[in-house]
């Protein structure tokens, strides 16, 4: 990659992560690793973001939040699952409130394993995502809107969750 049309901005959301991966993502922004040299900025607004970085797995409370953020991001967009919890659920996969990896809810483009994922591998993941972003831009890929209707219907039926 010698030329890029965009400086990819990322939005980070902590799903049900233990903070281990989150602080490593923050560490990527700081002088030691410094991803800002690639033009990568951590933004708080989904409408400004190109890359959605998620740590931790899906649980009952945050599935709606993840979908909202994903749907609000403009095309083209790329999702990076950081840490083993975001990839598959990790050590917490057997917990009653963990539904599994992020890919059960939104399409994931890059998986970054590790507990906690090291800053080097996070940067590697984001740079890979960047290539995919360029590809999507070139091919004018539009991402689907995700919704959780199935889950909600099931939920009503099962009467789960605290009322």
């Amino acid at each position: 990659m010698t030329y890029l049309a965009k400086s990819p901005w990322i939005i980070h959301y902590d799903a049900s992560s233990c903070n281990g991966c989150d602080i490593e993502i923050l560490a990527c922004l700081t002088p030691m690793y410094d991803v800002e040299r690639f033009g990568i900025i951590n933004t708080g607004n989904p409408k400004h973001a190109d890359i959605f970085v998620v740590t931790g797995s899906i649980n009952e409370a945050n599935r709606e939040v993840i979908q909202n953020i994903y749907n609000q991001m403009p095309d083209p967009k790329v999702v990076v699952a950081v840490g083993i919890c975001a990839c598959s659920g990790g050590v917490f996969r057997e917990c009653y409130n963990v539904a599994g990896g992020i890919d059960k809810l939104i399409p994931v483009d890059v998986y970054v394993p590790g507990c906690a994922a090291r800053p080097e591998s996070i940067i590697d993941g984001i740079v890979t995502a960047w290539g995919i972003l360029e590809e999507k831009l070139k091919n004018k890929v539009s991402s689907p809107m995700v919704s959780d209707h199935d889950h909600k219907a099931h939920h009503k039926h099962a009467q789960g969750g605290a009322q």
Partner: peptide
């Protein structure tokens, strides 16, 4: 938003293995 329910994992993990779960309550 971050509730995983990891305290209930003691039923599935031996007390020596559970140290790793206890450590992952929080990454800080």
């Amino acid at each position: 938003y971050v509730h995983r329910g990891l305290e209930k994992l003691v039923e599935k993990r031996e007390y020596t293995e559970y140290v790793f779960i206890a450590e992952r309550i929080c990454g800080i």
